[in-house]
Nucleic acid binder design. Structure first.
Lengths: 252, 252
DNA sequence: CTCAAAATTAATGTATACAGTTTTGATTAG
DNA sequence: CTAATCAAAACTGTATACATTAATTTTGAG
């Protein structure tokens, strides 16, 4: 019953398949799922990257079984695509798809604001402002983290609704939005977002829901259009290399 | 308070009818997923039903591996819930959750109508009318099929948008809606739906999107409230028995 | 040399084994 | 007869094996 926190970094770096014992029996799949998800959102795994089950498995020190179920979830979420008998790959949405996703996102975030009506408390605003602060801080440092944080702002809003389903849907469109920005966006596309987030908070504090909705819509249109210019490169890196950064189980 | 204590509707026992293995290696998981999904939506598998991997596996003549990935998908979709180390069960949403889901659904279907604007063609109307006809036909016969068809009307509308993500989201809320109606709905709750579907079609044909939106909203509210009266029965049946009807393997 | 067929390697689909956890059932004490 | 205890049975989590299908490399003919 007591979970041991055996920090047991047992990496299969070499090609040798070594017998490792799972440090904590339990949610390995969850961990792999979360890690892959983050790696994708943060652009560490570029769209189109192949995800062979056993390579990913050795990266995390788990078997294909575990990787497989993580991948099934990612496919269901649209972050990964897979055809029968073929390797899963990080999704690489077309511009058409991207636009469709952002249209759905706008509708969902409108719903968020509606649900939020009269449900917002002072503590919520504090958290929102705190988040924006960390966005600002990250802005000048890490680029991919900036994208992730920007998305998490919207996720935070959704969470305040307490509507589980809405949270999940928003979570999905936000993730895929990040992926899309990674694909089509220019380097500093998330730059102005911080200001727009702030304006939104202020409208909400004023209780001006109509204005908030307008700002949100504008914001999302801006985010969507800011990221529609050039189709960019994908860098080539070793999968093992990339995933090694995600291996240390820093889960919540 | 009338909750029974032994909620013990598990699925399988009895001699597993050994199914000869499908020599065609392929999408077994897909088949299991689809079948379970249908079984849940058609109320054949009542909310709360336990879904042990082995039992389901023997029902379909496949191994746990296959069942497992199907269940992962169903969990991601919210039709099945699962806690670590414990058996998956068919979801049994609370009234609170049910209402939250229907609120999201209303928003999504509003989006559908918006996307549909100017995209509707004569052939679409033909299909919609044909579908309503089959709804009417099924109404007097099979009760669960009626619920399913009613949901598929909404899915059809969503499909006409061509927006993949929207289709998936609507698909999910429709499925879960069916589940909810099965849980809380009275026998004939889908009765009047047919008329409301017709009225909606007519508004769309007139090109009156505003009216269509109003009707849709009204319709969904009606469906939601029609199904909020008594907390009802769940029938007790053997799992094997139930699933045997879903077994006939769909050829690839 | 070029290109296509064959052979080889890599990766997925599926089943199964085993360890650890939960659930069930039975036995015993009060 | 009820409640607590504990062992057996039922399940899940995970790894691994094997068959089959995709990807890649080699080979052979023109």
């Amino acid at each position: 019953m007591i979970r041991r926190k055996t920090d047991h970094t047992d990496i299969a770096e070499g090609p040798g398949p070594k017998r490792k014992r799972a440090s904590r029996a339990g949610n390995l799949a969850e961990h792999v799922y979360t890690s892959l998800r983050r790696a994708i959102i943060e652009q560490a795994l570029a769209p189109g990257t192949k995800l062979p089950e056993d390579s990913v498995g050795t990266s995390f020190g788990v078997s294909r079984t575990v990787v497989r179920s993580a991948i099934v979830r990612l496919v269901a979420e649209g972050l990964v695509v897979q055809q029968p008998n073929m390797r899963a790959t990080v999704a690489s949405p077309s511009l058409e798809e991207a636009r469709a996703i952002f249209r759905v996102r706008r509708g969902l975030e409108r719903m968020v604001l509606e649900e939020l009506m009269s449900r917002l408390e002072p503590s919520h605003f504090a958290k929102l402002r705190a988040h924006v602060t960390s966005e600002e801080k990250a802005k000048r440092h890490a680029e991919p983290e900036s994208i992730r944080l920007s998305g998490e702002f919207h996720l935070l809003l959704a969470q305040f609704t307490g509507n589980e389903l809405l949270i999940r849907f928003v979570s999905e469109v936000v993730s895929r939005g990040s992926l899309i920005l990674a694909l089509y966006g220019r380097p500093h596309s998330s730059e102005c977002a911080v200001n727009e987030h702030l304006a939104l908070i202020e409208a909400l504090e004023r209780g001006d829901l109509t204005e908030a909705a307008r700002l949100m819509d504008e914001h999302l249109v801006a985010v969507a259009t800011r990221g529609l210019l050039d189709t960019d490169i994908k860098r080539e890196r070793s999968l093992q290399d990339i995933l090694s950064a995600y291996r240390p189980a820093g889960e919540a």
